[in-house]
Design a protein around this nucleic acid. Structure first.
Lengths: 221, 221
DNA sequence: ATTTTTATAGATCAATCGATCAACAAGAAT
DNA sequence: ATTCTTGTTGATCGATTGATCTATAAAAAT
């Protein structure tokens, strides 16, 4: 639906131009394979995030300023390209030091939660991540479940232990309680990037209040 | 991806059969237009919920046990069919008596919240609704935003007023706080039907605890 | 300069898509 | 039984899709 208008490929008049160092601009000719591949993946991430994983390769190529056949030089099949998009988007999304900092009891639990969700929300509250995560989830992608299982095991489960340890009143916290805290925060990004609803430009205040309510119910400072 | 296997249309041997009253089974021939249209819409809801709004009309027709061309007898275009799917799914999803019951201060706020979210979750925690809502949201459908705006104006905003009135401590509740409560609950359905994650078969306990935590933070009984 | 390598473009294929149309047949009317 | 209406089918069109192939030209090697 209303993807970019048809535009000429404008390959005439090879205007003289000083050689660019990074070579990310000047989407013209004969890039070293590594760069070209990365350029295609980056473009594909943005493109598929907008129009969905069923967006066609011709529109993607046009947006890249490149022929459609070139894409298939670097990826044997469209599914391979999508797989590369998944890897690019999912890779290293869970910072390896979060588990440690989340369980570091030398700092108050509230601060740990605040730090974690401030950083995590800054990382995932982006159109590309949010939408590709949702598209791939709906498509039943294995990477999606793997990500959530890892999130659960590496971050949320330790988090539950921390909350349980710090709790001074209320019911024994369960995994569902943690998911509820998590979901309520993530839902801000869903409202913004999936539903296109107006949202606070800075979600940190809403996040802080959600965390405080959560801890309050368990009698944590 | 792995939609039903190719199967013959099995229209030979018109096995004698007693005329069925409801006529929902025996997807064979010459249904009155109203019934056939409804059958197509019902099938389309289930079909598009599974494979997405870009599922093709031939697979849908095959699933209905009907020719593809027949679909276009009842819907001039595929977009018209999708529009009918939207109407079918979105129609009357917000019960008209909820606003009144949600603001009926003769019953405790906790009971009202519990009643509302018990019924609401039972209504929307279904694959068809959840997935079509997400598909249409990603597609940028206008109906999607309209629904959320109505939800916000008719239910969540009054709810905010109720919470603000009942609050005895904590910060002044904001709309973002209500969205957080709502999102945390809805996220259960997202985990289940969009991400395909294991979830409690009965979410009412998780919902109850979420509501209690929310009210607790504002000092409501 | 000349040759060699290969990244890229352009043309094109086969499959699939939404959509159309004429012919058929089920069921009501007579 | 015959006619008439119209719900339904099967064949097919034109556009679009992912994917392939060959010719070209940019850049490295000589």
């Amino acid at each position: 639906m209303l993807i970019g208008a048809k535009r000429g490929v404008e390959m005439d008049k090879p205007v003289e131009r000083a050689p660019v160092a990074a070579a990310t601009r000047d989407a013209r000719r004969r890039l070293p394979p590594g760069e070209r591949r990365q350029q295609i993946v980056d473009g594909a991430v943005a493109f598929f995030a907008e129009v969905g994983l069923e967006g066609n390769t011709r529109d993607l190529a046009r947006r890249l300023g490149v022929t459609q056949s070139l894409i298939f030089r670097y990826f044997a099949t469209k599914d391979d390209l999508i797989e590369a998009v998944y890897e690019q988007v999912y890779l290293e999304r869970l910072s390896p030091d979060w588990p440690d900092r989340l369980t570091d009891r030398t700092t108050p639990l509230r601060d740990r939660l605040l730090d974690f969700y401030t950083q995590y929300s800054a990382l995932i509250f982006q159109s590309e991540w949010m939408r590709i995560f949702m598209f791939s989830g709906l498509a039943g992608a294995a990477l999606n479940r793997r990500y959530l299982q890892q999130l659960s095991g590496v971050l949320l489960k330790p988090l539950l232990a921390e909350v349980a340890d710090a709790a001074t009143r209320g019911p024994t916290p369960t995994m569902e309680d943690i998911w509820n805290l998590h979901g309520g925060i993530v839902y801000i990004g869903i409202r913004q990037h999936i539903y296109g609803m107006p949202c606070p430009d800075d979600p940190s205040e809403a996040i802080e209040r959600a965390i405080d309510r959560f801890l309050c119910a368990f009698g944590v400072a």
